[in-house]
């Protein structure tokens, strides 16, 4: 069990963010602890994806602070945040995230290659993760030739390959049927547990959220965070 008394790995404090006249985040605060699986739930348009993007340093909030391992993300330059995302974070999205021209193996190797790892070494590591997620057989295929479930597992492998400390997953099973979705979640969470990565899981499906250790509900740009019961 994760000790809630520890300092959080990633924390959002009093975030506000508006897109034009739409207020997406309205004093949102959240803590993510190392190694935990946190489900971000809430109705569509509640701001949960926006909160995820802010936590990952993709979006910068209008006001408020996001701190990762004690570093203030909003004080970083764009390239520093990019480097952080390359090395410390991993991402899984609902769909359309694999580069269609690259083979699945090359897709998985991509984050390592971006971080400067040599091609051979990167693809070796990628092959290991494809096997771990039981999709070694699609390694040489392009994403278009793999099924939806296989594609998501490839995406999960890609998120894990750089051994990130936080993985952000935005509706990772949203485009899959229940059976495929369950399998992806099981493999995903097990692999994340093994690497010790924290997972921030945006979902509106309670059964997917049930893979988390804790949930936070976003409503109208505000977070109701469930604390760990001791």
């Amino acid at each position: 069990m994760v000790n809630s008394a520890n300092d959080p790995l990633l924390a959002a404090d009093d975030l506000h963010l508006s897109f034009g006249s739409t207020q997406a985040l309205n004093s949102a605060s959240l803590r993510v602890y190392a190694g935990e699986v946190l489900a971000l739930m809430g109705p569509s348009g509640s701001g949960k994806s926006t909160l995820l993007h802010c936590l990952a340093g993709i979006l910068t909030p209008d006001t408020g602070r996001v701190t990762y391992a004690g570093r203030d993300l909003s004080a970083m330059s764009d390239s520093e945040r990019s480097a952080l995302r390359r090395t410390e974070f991993g991402f899984v999205f609902q769909f359309g995230q694999l580069v269609p021209e690259l083979t699945c193996l090359e897709n998985v190797a991509l984050p390592l290659r971006l971080a400067g790892v040599g091609r051979r070494q990167a693809q070796g590591a990628a092959a290991g993760w494809l096997a771990r997620l039981e999709v070694a057989d699609v390694a040489q295929k392009r994403p278009g030739q793999a099924s939806g479930g296989q594609g998501q597992r490839v995406a999960v492998a890609r998120a894990l390959v750089s051994r990130p400390r936080v993985i952000f997953a935005d509706e990772p099973t949203g485009a899959l049927d229940s059976l495929n979705g369950e399998r992806v979640m099981q493999l995903f969470i097990a692999a994340a547990r093994d690497t010790g990565a924290a997972v921030v899981l945006v979902t509106h499906e309670p059964r997917v959220a049930a893979y988390s250790g804790r949930e936070a509900v976003v409503r109208d740009g505000r977070v109701r965070e469930q604390e760990y019961a001791l």
Binding site: H53, A56, I58, S79, S82, A83, L84, R85, R86, T87, F89, G90, F91, F93, G96, Q97, V99, P100, P111, L114, A115, R158, A159
Partner: peptide, 16 residues
């Protein structure tokens, strides 16, 4: 557009 956004999300440099 979406793929580009994803690539940037996981830290791809614009120079790349």
């Amino acid at each position: 557009r979406r793929l580009l956004a994803v690539l940037v999300a996981f830290g791809t440099r614009r120079a790349t």
